[in-house]
């Protein structure tokens, strides 16, 4: 409930805008000068447990330890692979950090340029040298499927509170999904279903700042055949993998009625959002073909990333002010 209050009074702030004049502490994407707190990025202002935060609307992915990321092998060396994790920093993956025994110079037999992996950020040092590891539950090489990229700032929206959104998409589309914190999403399943899942993700990306998003997406996915027509028409665009903004617009033109219903209704019954998902999520795990680890990693990640999750919020926040002091 409290969250909801914060959300409904959400204010858009630009860098340098005054957030608080004392009483509160500087949280994410803010900085302080004197005893005043200012926004350092453009986004929505939110207050949680004495901290003023700004939920950013755009920005690059900056790796943090324990983040799950979807990486693409850029180059292969005798003892390491270089992984592109969609951040300003390429990340080496050392042979000792993979679950296989790799002899010297045999690296390319295991992973080669262009291969996709699900990995965990292992170390990030003070000058942002990054290392990733695959010696982790759920880390794996991803074969088949396809990858789409979204803005890393929208990842928490795609995962949803406690993983509610992602498990709902998995259930409705019968796809296997991995959402990396770096904004890369790997999707595998029936081509028809992949298309549906991609559309759902694009829908979330587009509508990320609105209330009752989970319900809206659920409605979006439980669409009568009319939407499928629309899907077929926009299919070629999706294949291009690029985050094309036009996708959504076309869809809108094709199925204006559906769009209208999804726009109106969720705002009335936002309260349902919090109750429903947990049951759903548990239900999924047993029904789906997806291996247990998949489900697990998805959820773990979800908890980490969901910024509305209070406990996690506090944990991460504690370190934040110290970092900011360094900024001054």
């Amino acid at each position: 409930m409290e969250n909801e209050k914060n959300v409904s009074t959400r204010v858009l702030v630009t860098p340098g805008e005054l957030l608080s004049e004392g009483g509160l502490k500087a949280g994410k994407n803010t900085y302080w000068q004197g005893n005043k707190i200012y926004a350092s990025q453009m986004g929505f202002k939110s207050i949680t447990a004495n901290y003023v935060n700004v939920t950013p609307l755009s920005g690059r992915y900056i790796p943090r330890p324990n983040d799950l990321v979807v990486g693409v092998i850029m180059s292969v060396n005798p003892t390491t692979w270089l992984v592109d994790i969609n951040s300003p920093y390429p990340a080496p993956l050392h042979v000792t950090e993979v679950p296989w025994r790799v002899d010297f110079g045999e690296t390319s037999r295991f992973l080669n340029t262009g291969d996709t992996i699900l990995a965990k950020v292992f170390i990030v040092d003070e000058i942002k040298r990054v290392q990733v590891t695959m010696k982790d539950h759920g880390s794996r090489r991803l074969t088949g499927g396809q990858i789409i990229e979204i803005s890393p700032t929208k990842v928490p929206r795609v995962i949803g509170k406690g993983g509610s959104m992602i498990s709902m998409i998995k259930q409705k589309t019968m796809c296997r999904l991995f959402v990396g914190q770096n904004g890369r999403i790997w999707i595998d399943g029936d081509p028809e279903n992949i298309r549906l899942a991609v559309n759902a993700v694009r829908f979330i990306e587009r509508e990320s700042h609105r209330f009752g998003l989970t319900e809206a997406v659920e409605k979006y996915l439980t669409k009568p055949p009319s939407l499928k027509e629309g899907d077929n028409q926009i299919a070629p665009e999706i294949k291009s993998l690029s985050g094309d903004v036009n996708e959504g617009k076309q869809l809108r033109e094709i199925a204006p009625e559906e769009e209208a219903t999804t726009m109106d209704e969720p705002e009335q019954d936002t309260k349902g959002e919090e109750k429903a998902p947990p049951d759903d999520a548990e239900g999924d795990a047993s029904q789906e073909e997806v291996p247990l680890t998949t489900e697990k990693s998805g959820e773990e990640e979800a908890e980490k990333s969901d910024e509305e999750d209070l406990e996690e919020q506090e944990k991460t926040i504690v370190e934040e002010p110290y970092e900011r002091i360094g900024d001054q």
């Binding site: 630009t14 860098p15 340098g16 994407n29 990025q41 986004g43 755009s58 700032t153």
Partner: peptide, 11 residues
Amino acid sequence: LADAGVPMKAL
């Protein structure tokens, strides 16, 4: 720069 989400003191 603000649109890009680059952390900055102010515009």
